[in-house]
């Protein structure tokens, strides 16, 4: 079933990655939770980290990348200090979730999936958070905000330290006409 980690490495300094891998007994099948735990700590997965995981688990780097790029909860880019997640489930969609997402894009001047250049904010869309009775839903830094409107969204952004401002004409190309 699962393969044990080979004792490897010339130096045996217990790095964070090694500690996390040890927690899962060095099993290669635990690669997904290992990457998740590393990401919870570092907020993203750098190429150095992926190389270290491949070395420690004794699997090809290509395998680590195949997993890291497949799953949406794993990020190969640095994420912001504040995470805004806009739910795009069907219930949120029929109750106007798209307009809420576009509002966040305009206010944060980034597109969904992007992080602001100052690494303060990451804007994400999620397929469904399973809280459909509260639609449309936004999660900001782990807090759930229900029945979103544009003005409620401004209040949420304010709690994250984004002051309201007079919007500019067509900021950052977001909300462009199709």
């Amino acid at each position: 079933m699962a393969q044990k980690r080979k004792t490897s490495g010339t130096d045996s300094k217990p790095t964070a990655v090694r500690r996390i891998i040890a927690k899962y007994g060095g099993q290669t099948r635990a690669i997904i939770p290992i990457l998740q735990d590393i990401q919870d700590r570092e907020r993203w997965l750098s190429s150095q980290v992926l190389e270290e995981v491949a070395r420690e688990l004794d699997v090809p780097l290509a395998h680590v990348y195949s997993v890291a790029t497949f799953y949406k909860s794993l990020s190969l880019e640095p994420r912001g200090r504040h995470i805004c997640t806009v739910c795009m489930g069907t219930a949120c969609h029929v109750r106007g979730g798209t307009a809420i997402l576009e509002h966040f894009e305009r206010r944060l001047r980034i597109r969904a999936g992007q992080t602001s250049p100052d690494r303060e904010y990451t804007l994400e869309r999620v397929n469904c958070l399973g809280a459909c009775a509260l639609a449309p839903l936004v999660v900001a830094d782990g807090r759930y905000y229900s029945q979103m409107t544009e003005s409620k969204a401004n209040a949420v952004l304010e709690t994250l330290g984004r002051r309201s401002e007079r919007p500019h004409r067509n900021p950052s190309g977001a909300g462009r006409r199709r």
Partner: peptide
């Protein structure tokens, strides 16, 4: 086993691949 955000992993054979530590 904690999922990692892929809709297709709800399909049974894909879910099995995911538990095995593969792409779903």
């Amino acid at each position: 086993v904690r999922g990692a955000g892929a809709f297709v992993s709800g399909e049974e054979t894909a879910l099995i691949a995911s538990i095995e530590g593969q792409r779903a």
